[in-house]
Design a protein around this nucleic acid. Sequence first.
DNA 1: AGTGCGATTGACT
DNA 2: GTCAATCGCACTA
Length: 207
Amino acid sequence: MTSAPEHTLAAPRRLGRDALPHETVALARALIGKTLVHEAPEGRMSVRIVETEAYPVGDAAGHAFIGQTRRNASLFRAFGHAYVYLGYGVSWLLNVSSESHGVGAGVLLRAGEPIEGVDIMMRRRGRGRLAELTSGPGKLCMAMDVDKRLDGADFFDGGPLWLGEAVRPAGDIGVSVRIGITKDAERPLRFYERGNPFVSGPRKLSP
DNA sequence: AGTGCGATTGACT
DNA sequence: GTCAATCGCACTA
């Protein structure tokens, strides 16, 4: 054999806590192209992050804006913890806590490009098109088996949910307003990889 | 104890 | 394109 099996090409190394910027908006941008991995009981799944949204300190649209509560407590944990909550009573949504302990801010992971465990994710999502497997925050969590159990998990403590180096460098990064919010709606805090078919939302917002 | 509301999705016209 | 589903949580009383 002259070439390695495809799955070995896709295995990234774990990123350390200080390999990413702790400031919220910088983190949202830096996460584009990085790998999100979940080593779940049913198998290992990973995606290349292609869309994020920043919810910085003092942002009226952020869940931390009202202060720390039971629901948003994970946003106030140290940099690099998972904040998972149920949106619209229907979908789980995954964030990475940013800044430092006691400061409520985070980055929403909105979409990924499937890399490993595509068969597992397709099964979890039911029959559907590959283009819609992980092209939205709720779809991403459904596919990767992320739910309330992972709320508060540390991305950098060697656990099953972690962030890895980029399998392929990020391309041109677009910026737009965030999707589906009404407060502080005009702020350009959504980041996505231009031209990537797995980015969510209206084409209008992702030229 | 009751009320209102989403950082969404998928089904349907 | 429109719109209902669905429920944990924060808030009011």
